[in-house]
Design a binder for these strands. Structure first.
Lengths: 260, 260
DNA sequence: CAGTGGTCTAGACCACTGG
DNA sequence: CAGTGGTCTAGACCACTGC
C-alpha cells in the first residue's frame, strides 16, 4: 500500500533538443513497477504474484490498468496467467515448454518421442574474458568468466556440442559437479541456484565445417557441415548474461523457426 | 449494419464424447468476422478498415470488444493500427519492415547499408506436383504447380539461391517476365497481382554441402557449407501457398533469430 | 463456496492526424 | 477542428480452480 505512481513525465529533464514530451501511459509505469519487483526478487520464479485487485489497490489504479500491464508482461513470457488460480512468475523449470530457447527438432516425430537429452560435461573452468567475450557480456576485458563445454545426445547420438561463457560474479560457486548432478534445463538451475532468470535471447546462425576435435566429440565424418548457433541470452533490463556457441548436427534434426 | 453475432456455442453439435462446451468469447467471434472480410477481399492490403465505432455498430457490440479483436489481429501482423489515422490491412509492400520473412543479415552493419538486393530469375516453369510438393502445398499429386528458381545478390555477390513452388491455380498468369519486371518484395507482387497475402511461415534449417550446380550459381568453392532453409508460407486459414527451398551463403551474412 | 483471472459494457478524456 | 486510435475508470457478470 506504499508504492506510488508518478505523474506523466517521469524524466525531470527538459531537453530543448528533444522536443518529444515522452508521454508514458499509466499502465506502462505499472509495468515498470512490476518489473522492478520481479528483478528485485520480491516474487520469485514459479511463485504467484498478488491478485489483480490487490495490485490495483497497491498502485492506486483500476484493475483494468493493472490488467493491461500484466497482459504485456505475460505476452513477453515474464508472467504466466492461470485462470482461477492467479498470475505466476515464469520459470524455465516445470514449464510446459522446457528448453524454450532450443529450436532443434527431430525431422520426424515430436521432441518428446526421443526422450530427454543425455548430457556430458566436457570441461568447466574459470578464465579471464578476452575482447570478444567481454564485449558480448558487457563486462570489462580481463574480468573473470566461467567457461563450460558440453555435448548433448539425442536418442544416444551426439548432436550438439556447445561452449558457454558466464560472467564470474553472478555465478560464483558454479562447478562441473553442480552442472552434472542437476537434472533439468540449465536455465532452471541458474534461477534456483543463482537467482538469474534468462528472459530473452538472440541467435546468429551460420553453416560451418567442423575441425578435427569437433568431429571426434560429435562422432561425425570430416566435412559433415554443422549449424553454428551463437546465442546471447539476456536477463532483466536487457543485461547480457550468457554467451553460447553451439554446433548442431543436422542429419536427423533441424532448426525450426516460426515467422509471423 | 446487417451482420449478426451468434450465441456462445457456435457449433450446433452436441457431441457426447467431447464434453468441452467450446466456449468462445464474443471478441473471438468478432475476430473471426473481421478475418472473413479480410479473406473475402472486402478490405484489401494497404487499405483502411472501418473505424472501431463503425465496426462496433455493425456487429452490435461495444467498442472495447471490437478493440480486443483488432488488438489480436494487429499483434499477429494482419492489421496495422495508426493512431489518429485508422486501422489498415497489413501488406508486404511499403511496409517499414520489407522482406519480413527474410532473416539473413550482414555480419556487420544494418540491412540497409548494403542497399537493396539484386535479383536474377534463373528459371520459371510449370510442372506437375510430386508427392513431396503436393503434400507441402496441400494439393493433389499431379496438380499443376509453378516452379521458380532465382539468385539474390547482396552488394554484388551471389548470396541466396532459392527454388520456390506455387500452386498453379491461384497463380495463373505468373511468368518469369512479370517477376523480373517487378521491383519489390515478391510477396507484395502476390498481393497486388493475385490477391494472395502470406500471413505466416515456418522454416526448417539445416547445414548442407552444395553440389556442383549450386557452387557455380553462387560462385563458391566446393565444400563451402550452406544454410538450407526450407520455408512453407501460409495465407489466411493456415492454407499453405508456397514451398521455398533456399541456400544461403553465410560467409559474410548470418541468419538472425530473436527468442522470447 | 470464495477467490482468481476473463469478458463485456459504457462513458470520459487524451494524443495524434489531417484538412 | 472533427475523427481516429489510445488510455483509464467503474461495475457487472462469467468461467475456472480448489477447498
Amino acid at each position: 500500500m506504499t508504492s506510488q505512481v508518478f505523474s506523466v513525465d517521469a524524466s525531470g529533464l527538459t531537453d530543448a533538443a528533444s522536443a518529444a514530451p515522452a508521454f508514458s501511459p499509466l499502465y506502462q509505469q505499472i509495468k515498470g513497477l512490476i518489473l522492478q519487483s520481479l528483478q528485485s526478487g520480491e516474487w520469485k520464479p514459479g511463485e504467484g504474484i498478488p491478485s489483480e485487485m490487490e495490485l490495483a489497490a497497491r498502485y492506486r489504479v483500476s484493475q483494468g490498468t493493472v490488467r493491461k500491464a500484466i497482459d504485456e508482461l505475460a505476452s513477453g513470457n515474464l508472467l504466466i496467467r492461470r485462470q482461477g488460480k492467479g498470475t505466476f512468475v515464469a520459470t524455465h523449470a516445470e514449464q510446459q515448454v522446457q528448453y524454450r530457447f532450443l529450436k532443434l527438432m527431430p525431422d520426424s516425430g515430436n521432441p518428446k518421442s526421443e526422450g530427454p537429452a543425455q548430457r556430458k560435461i566436457i570441461d568447466c573452468k574459470r578464465l579471464r574474458a578476452n575482447a570478444e567475450i567481454s564485449r558480448a557480456l558487457a563486462i570489462r576485458n580481463g574480468d573473470a568468466v566461467l567457461q563450460v563445454s558440453r555435448v548433448l545426445l539425442f536418442a544416444g547420438s551426439p548432436t550438439i556440442l556447445e561452449h558457454l561463457w558466464l560472467p564470474g560474479a553472478p555465478f560464483k560457486g558454479l562447478t562441473a559437479e553442480r552442472l552434472s548432478e542437476y537434472d533439468g534445463p540449465m536455465y532452471a538451475l541458474f534461477e534456483t541456484e543463482f537467482g538469474v532468470r534468462m528472459v530473452r535471447a538472440e541467435e546468429k546462425i551460420k553453416a560451418v565445417v567442423p575441425d578435427a576435435a569437433q568431429c571426434k566429440l560429435l562422432e561425425i565424418k570430416p566435412h559433415t557441415p554443422l549449424l553454428s548457433v551463437e546465442r546471447t541470452a539476456f536477463t532483466y533490463n536487457d543485461t547480457p548474461m550468457e554467451l553460447r556457441r553451439g554446433f548442431y548436427v543436422t542429419n536427423t534434426h533441424h532448426y525450426h523457426n516460426a515467422l509471423n
